[in-house]
Design a protein around this nucleic acid. Structure first.
Length: 303
DNA sequence: CCCAAAGTTATATAAGTCGC
DNA sequence: GCGACTTATATAACTTTGGG
């Protein structure tokens, strides 16, 4: 495991004590130093930092293209070097949806093809395809050099409300609710942004809503234009355990950690169901079965 | 055309933790 | 109980491209 932020790495290392960990940027090591044991099949998964490719990152850093980012723009290079040197059987690349159109993505595709891989690539929306209320879209590329892998699944849109995902009204609500002064400040800020023509605004959700916007990494900073939950008094922040549910996790993954860290981890992590599905499909593929074709799908394709 | 947020950075203040 | 340090809270100024 390689991770730049020591706090995040510590969480991961605790959950996976058997793993070797490297704290720093992937660009700091020669790919040969980062080898994985050749015991059996090797799967290489990389989430190259998206701060050069995301809309907010481009905007904030004044970049005209993702690769211009001074710290992370070049990280597709060590990724390619690693893949070409170690030739893992399966490669999974994950990123923000706009990464698909970057030069990095193009070069990664070319390098994979040149190294004997075929790949399946798509942008997944958990709300539309994995019956999960979050709209956190992800670009996912799965490459294989042991036969052509196709990630086939039955897309199922989220067809419920947030009622099962948000905590019911409770005694903590009042203390966590924004004060009238805070509400006024947020209103003022949002009104100003709207007047300036900004396309974003604060959203306040309740149990009746049919989806929820993205919870960003900086959620703990209490940005005025973020997602909040309606309360009797005003509105409050989402609690980490609620985000766990909204992201399709069965348990409160980071309970006990500082709240800020919990928000950061969920805010830059993935929504679980697509990746659980992908993992199962890859496992079936490697076991020699048809790549995760659910019942009924083969007939569809035959027609 | 409309929409979206792995937004960033800085400052101030208070509360809590920990070793000694 | 002090000081060093971490964490939480609050406020504010600044940021806009690409895709459906």
């Amino acid at each position: 495991m390689i991770e730049l932020e020591a706090r995040y790495l510590a969480v991961s290392a605790k959950a996976h004590p058997e793993a070797s960990t490297w704290n720093g940027s992937a660009g700091e090591w020669h790919p040969a130093e980062l080898s994985t044991p050749r015991a059996s099949v090797r799967l290489f998964a990389a989430g190259i930092p998206c701060t050069g490719a995301s809309k907010a990152g481009l905007s904030k850093n004044g970049l005209s293209y993702a690769e211009e980012h001074p710290d992370v723009g070049y990280l597709f290079l060590p990724t390619i070097h690693y893949i070409r040197l170690h030739k893992p059987e399966i490669v999974v690349l994950e990123n923000t949806d706009t990464y698909r159109g970057t030069l990095s993505a193009r070069l990664l595709r070319d390098a994979l093809t040149a190294s004997g891989y075929t790949f399946d690539e798509r942008v997944v929306n958990p709300l539309k395809e994995f019956a999960t209320p979050s709209q956190r879209k992800r670009w996912i590329l799965v490459a294989s050099r042991v036969g052509r892998f196709s990630w086939i699944y039955e897309a199922k849109a989220f067809a419920s409300t947030l009622a099962d995902y948000l905590d019911p009204e409770g005694p903590e609500d009042d203390a966590e609710s924004a004060t009238p002064k805070q509400v006024a400040a947020a209103d003022k800020y949002c009104a100003r942004k709207k007047a300036e023509g900004a396309g974003f605004a604060r959203t306040i959700v309740g149990p009746e809503d049919l989806s929820i916007g993205v919870v960003p990494k900086s959620y703990a900073k209490r940005q005025h234009t973020a997602v909040y939950v309606r309360t009797k008094k005003s509105y409050r922040m989402l609690r980490p355990r609620e985000i766990a549910r909204l992201h399709g996790f069965k348990r409160d993954l980071f309970a006990g950690l500082p709240k800020t860290t919990q928000y950061e981890l969920y805010g830059q992590g993935v929504v679980a169901p697509p990746f659980i599905c992908l993992g199962e499909c890859i496992a079936r593929f490697l076991n020699g079965e048809l790549a995760g074709v659910p019942a009924g799908q083969l007939e569809l394709f035959a027609g």
